[in-house]
């Protein structure tokens, strides 16, 4: 048990807290694996343009569907482009778009949820019914509508994804706020006459922050899957930008004789999703939120 830390804990700086959380996460095997995968992908996303051995959009009909070789490690695709280059570059777009998408989802979902939980009453009823209404719309159809109206640029995709993945966070943030709102320290702050803003900022956010962050981390991996599905359907980023969903979609017809062209992006996508999921789980455990809480036996 954490006896010593309980008795001797002092206030720490944000950096010290963060590094402590990361160390706790890495002390669990699943957390260490998740973190390593995630960090590997992030580093790759940063350095891939500089280490890519070939030009990702260089089409060469003579090199069509070459098997993996010393020169083309993962082979080439149906247009003769290097699969290795396209795979290591494919994570970049997905990571950037979904990272900022999740941030937007966290911000609007979290704040709206906390606000609804705090004020309650009619406003809460109306807002939550609207959120429910959006939850009932298949998001992929709505996304297709938005993309076909506004195009597939990053400026459209990030807020659109952020909006659709924030709905669930509203519910989580609202529920977490409800847990806190009945506690006496909120009543006490109200009785002292603090403003709603001050109550949200000082009293509620420190207590719901962890739950919302964990939910946001989980949403990140779902959004990644969702974004790749869009690309797969041809509504994500447009060619020739390398993207895993797009690569899988292009190569899946040739799977029977050119498996290499489809395996590389699949491994990239699924390892990143697994990495984020494991990291989010370890993050939750490090913060003391056990997502698989069992009844005490």
């Amino acid at each position: 048990m954490k006896l010593d830390s309980i008795y001797k804990e002092e206030k720490k700086s944000a950096f010290a807290k963060l590094s402590e959380i990361i160390i706790t996460m890495a002390s669990r095997p699943s957390g260490l694996i998740g973190l390593s995968i995630l960090v590997f992908h992030i580093i790759l996303a940063f350095i891939s343009p500089y280490i890519a051995p070939h030009d990702f959009k260089a089409i060469d009909p003579t090199l069509m569907l070459q098997a993996p070789s010393a020169q083309y490690w993962f082979g080439t695709d149906d247009l003769g482009r290097d699969v290795f280059t396209r795979t290591i570059l494919g994570g970049r777009t997905a990571l950037t778009i979904t990272f900022f998408g999740s941030l937007i989802a966290l911000l609007w979902g979290g704040l709206l949820g906390i606000f609804c939980g705090l004020v309650g009453g009619k406003i809460d009823d109306v807002v939550m019914r609207i959120v429910d209404a959006f939850l009932s719309i298949p998001w992929i159809l709505a996304m297709l509508l938005i993309v076909s109206l506004l195009g597939t640029s990053t400026e459209v995709l990030i807020p659109a994804l952020g909006f659709f993945y924030g709905k669930g966070i509203v519910r989580v943030a609202r529920a977490a706020t409800h847990d806190v709102i009945a506690k006496d320290f909120i009543v006490s702050a109200r009785a002292r006459g603090h403003s709603n803003f001050s109550i949200i900022w000082n009293e509620i956010i420190p207590n719901v922050r962890d739950a919302i962050l964990v939910e946001g981390a989980m949403r990140w991996s779902w959004m990644l899957l969702g974004f790749s599905s869009l690309s797969f359907l041809g509504f994500g980023v447009s060619p020739p930008t390398p993207d895993w969903g797009l690569m899988i979609s292009n190569a899946r017809g040739l799977m029977s004789f050119a498996y290499w062209a489809v395996i590389a992006p699949i491994v990239g996508l699924s390892s990143l999703i697994i990495g984020i999921n494991l990291t989010a789980d370890a993050f939750a455990k490090a913060l003391g939120i056990d997502r698989s809480t069992k009844a005490p036996v």
């Binding site: 506690k183 006496d184 320290f185 009543v187 002292r192 000082n202 207590n207």
Partner: peptide, 18 residues
């Protein structure tokens, strides 16, 4: 608001744990 202050039953709930 200042002239009337409250002390609650359960200090676990009346102090913000964070």
């Amino acid at each position: 608001l200042r002239i009337i202050q409250l002390i609650f039953q359960n200090p676990d709930e009346s102090l913000n744990p964070n």
